[in-house]
Design a protein around this nucleic acid. Structure first.
Lengths: 201, 201, 201, 201
DNA sequence: TATGAATGAGTCTTCATTCAT
DNA sequence: TATGAATGAAGACTCATTCAT
């Protein structure tokens, strides 16, 4: 049985390796040249496989992007999760900085890729599902604010969620991608202050 | 002299009109089809001129975008200026909401164009100069915060400027382009509250 | 005025010449290699123009075929017309052979092209209109048979039209394309005999 | 011996089954998608075998078509034969309608396949042998007419054979594939009338 | 200056065929 | 023998740019 498996493994391994090498090449081209310059032939060449192989695993050019973005989103999410474990009952004064830190970490997962993905991808149906990640985070935040309603001032939760998410996302995004000079604990303190003061009674 | 001039004027006027019609066609195509689908031939056709004429006024495709973005930035800036006249000595409590309002107005100058320009333009050297608009605004804010140093808490000005600009830009951008349901006075109040609480001692 | 025209003529003439050369190349490739081997790049190369030029005049590969077929159908129809002028009141014994002769002539307009077009073109919406030529001829025949109802035996006109058109088309087609040895007056006589005997009381 | 055989039989049987499943898949794809969209990979997938297996039994794409067409021709021929048994001495008035009926039956063996094969297959050397079926039938008809020389008018037999075969083939083909509304006994009567009148003294 | 015909490299994608396992 | 991953030439089509008129 292990014999069969070991006989088949190489095949599966080869496929997996090919997919992997294609994705890496895609990421590389995407980061270095941008979405507009990413072509399937180019990716294949960089990956060292034939275009045919690429199309064996990805039905079209968009699929490359989708796979890349999905992978990135997953890695971001797990980074986020790791940072946020066991904080449900922490006071806001601890929860907020930790969350900011977590978002910064998530942004640092692959900043180059994030820059391209966040910056120059035309609206694409295939990516719609990905955006749900943000919506998911928004929903979580909404629930959390409702749970802690007594800790904060009276406010339209939906509006506050929009304000806070826009805010923190912009700050972390900007710091990681354009202003690394601000990337230190002071940024976290300032951002946390911004959020805490905004929420407090 | 007036002879020469009158002989030339029509020509210059015609040139200007041609440039204008090309830019409008570019904007139209850009908004409707996106940067990827914008082609010089299509723009020329929509503009009702020949490709040749287009290339007479714009050396290449990028030049169209640059002109468009420059024009848009100028219109945004003047909108901003109009809203901010005579506020030098206003108290923060008045200055901040007005500024937020001004930024929202600037974002509404041509949201469709802004969406495309902000969202799916590949990094382009030619557009670097445009970013100076933001830098310009940052510098202004920086000066203003220094002037009002006594009104606010002690803080690293550069860092605060980064935080505030990221924040307000993200909120206005998001509200205009993705969350129109928040586009009302409450948004301005919340945003102002965010900023004022962040700055106060 | 003629000056303007003569200045513009060259341009129009160039376009026309390009279209013509493309169509000729298409016909050549189609006859020599068949529809399956006809590619736009190949046609362009044979025509001595760039693919781009081809696409300036023909929106896609099918359009080449449509233009070719349309032209061929027109040439066939005018050949047919020439042969059938002034026969409205001729007796059947004269009308039938003349029509057979006319159909043979029509089939000889460009037999090679006809072979390909009639033989190996997959069903294509764009060609549907062309098939109306046959329907047109069927309608004419139908009318004629009704007009001459008294000269022929009682018969379901629609059925007879189907039988006759299938028949004569097959004979002329086969004679021109596969059995040139039969291409003489005896074929016309035999075919006419077939038709006349079929119709007579 | 039975040992060897029983050891081999399964293998041979499996081969046969594989060939069969491939051919059926080919036919299916051919009918549903046309010759242009028939690809060896697709056929293999539909057949549930690997491309490699396909190439084990068919050296190239054409071979699929050849096998398919050959099988179809054989089925058509046997249909024809079944209908024509024991008619050698029947009078023309009986022989002709029966033959027409037989040809119609042959055309109905697999009209979908016939439509594709007759309609959109590029000229292919490998299919030349198949055309011999028609030639075979022509030879039979030729002999028959010679045998019955006294029953019919004087005529160039070869010419008459060409006329008759073209005619009846076109009618049956057209009726089955494009004009089912004519597919009834009246069609057989009319066609027989056409033939009989053509041949009678 | 304006025109628009022409160019051709480059893009996405398909598919017959091979070959290592 | 079977498998299916891999190959890469070829095809349809686009578009920035040039240049003769």
């Amino acid at each position: 049985m292990s014999g069969t498996r070991s006989r088949r493994m190489p095949t599966q391994a080869r496929s997996k390796a090919t997919v992997e090498v294609i994705l890496q090449a895609s990421a590389q081209v995407l980061k270095r040249e941008g979405w507009a310059r990413l072509s399937t032939n180019r990716v294949a060449k960089v990956a060292g496989v034939s275009v045919g192989s690429l199309y064996q695993y990805f039905p079209n050019k968009e699929a490359l992007l989708v796979a890349l973005v999905r992978g990135h989103a997953e890695r971001q999410l797990s980074t986020l999760s790791e940072h946020l474990i066991g904080l449900q009952d922490a006071p806001l004064e601890q929860l907020v900085p930790t969350t900011v830190r977590a978002l910064l970490a998530a942004h640092r997962v692959d900043p180059e890729l994030h820059r391209v993905v966040a910056g120059e991808i035309p609206p694409m149906d295939a990516l719609a599902e990905i955006r749900s990640v943000q919506d998911h985070f928004a929903a979580l935040l909404s629930m959390e604010l409702k749970r802690r309603r007594h800790e904060i001032r009276e406010v339209d939760i939906e509006l506050a969620v929009f304000v806070l998410i826009s805010t923190v996302e912009a700050i972390t995004h900007g710091a990681v991608l354009r202003h690394e000079q601000f990337l230190d604990d002071r940024l976290i303190e300032e951002t946390s202050l911004l959020v805490l003061r905004y929420l407090e009674r």
